[in-house]
Simulated assay, not measured.
Amino acid sequence: MTRFGYFLATEEHGPEELVRQAGAAQEAGFDALWISDHYHPWLGAQGQSSFVWSVIGAIGQVTSLPVATAVTCPTTRIHPAIVAQAAATAAAMTPGGFSLGVGTGEALNEHILGDPWPHAARRLAMLEEAIEVMRELWSGRTVSHHGEFYTVDTARLYTLPEEPPPVLMSAFGPKATALAARAADGLVQVAPAPETVDRFRREGGAGKPVQGGLKVCWAPNEQDAVRTAYERWPNEALSGEAPQVLPSPRHFEQLTQGLVTPEMVADEVTCGPDPERHVAAIEAYLEAGVDEVYVCQVGDDQDGFFGFYSEEVLPRLRGAR
Rank of each mutant, 00 (worst) to 15 (best):
L286E: 13
Q48F: 09
A45I: 01
H146W: 04
D291P: 05
V55T: 13
E222S: 12
E163Q: 14
A225M: 08
A45R: 06
D267W: 07
G204I: 07
P41S: 12
W233A: 12
L187I: 07
V197Y: 07
R141E: 09
L127D: 13
T72P: 00
R232Q: 05
V245K: 02
T151N: 08
W117I: 14
A87W: 01
E129F: 11
F7V: 08
V260M: 09
G5E: 02
D153T: 13
T94W: 04
F4V: 13
S36G: 09
Q211D: 14
R182S: 13
C73K: 01
A81F: 02
L160S: 00
T69Y: 02
D300E: 12
T63W: 08
Y294G: 07
I56A: 04
A107P: 07
G289V: 05
L255N: 03
E276D: 15
T142A: 04
F149Q: 02
L157E: 00
C271V: 11
P174L: 14
F252C: 11
E129I: 11
N221S: 13
R135I: 06
L113M: 14
D301E: 11
I112V: 15
V71K: 01
A229G: 03
E268V: 12
A176K: 00
F252N: 03
G29Y: 02
S36R: 00
L255M: 14
A24K: 05
P273R: 09
H146T: 07
A237L: 04
D198G: 05
F149S: 05
A183K: 03
R20I: 09
G289A: 10
D198E: 08
A191M: 10
G240M: 06
E129Q: 03
F172N: 06
L214M: 15
S64R: 11
T142E: 08
T261G: 09
A176M: 15
L187D: 07
A280P: 09
F172C: 09
P275R: 10
V62K: 00
D153Q: 10
A281I: 05
A86W: 07
L246T: 08
A225H: 04
G57E: 01
G97F: 07
Q211E: 13
Q223M: 12
A183L: 02
E203D: 10
A266L: 11
E128F: 06
E222L: 11
T151F: 01
A81D: 02
F7L: 15
P41R: 00
A281R: 12
V260W: 09
P243N: 05
D198H: 06
L18G: 03
A84S: 05
T76S: 08
G319L: 11
A184V: 06
D198T: 07
M126L: 15
L246V: 07
G147A: 06
T10Y: 01
R321V: 15
A191G: 07
H251V: 12
P262K: 09
D224I: 04
A84L: 01
A24D: 08
G96Y: 10
L179V: 13
T76V: 13
R123C: 12
D300N: 10
P220D: 15
L160A: 02
M134E: 06
A183F: 07
F51R: 01
A125H: 12
T196M: 01
H38M: 08
C217T: 15
A284L: 05
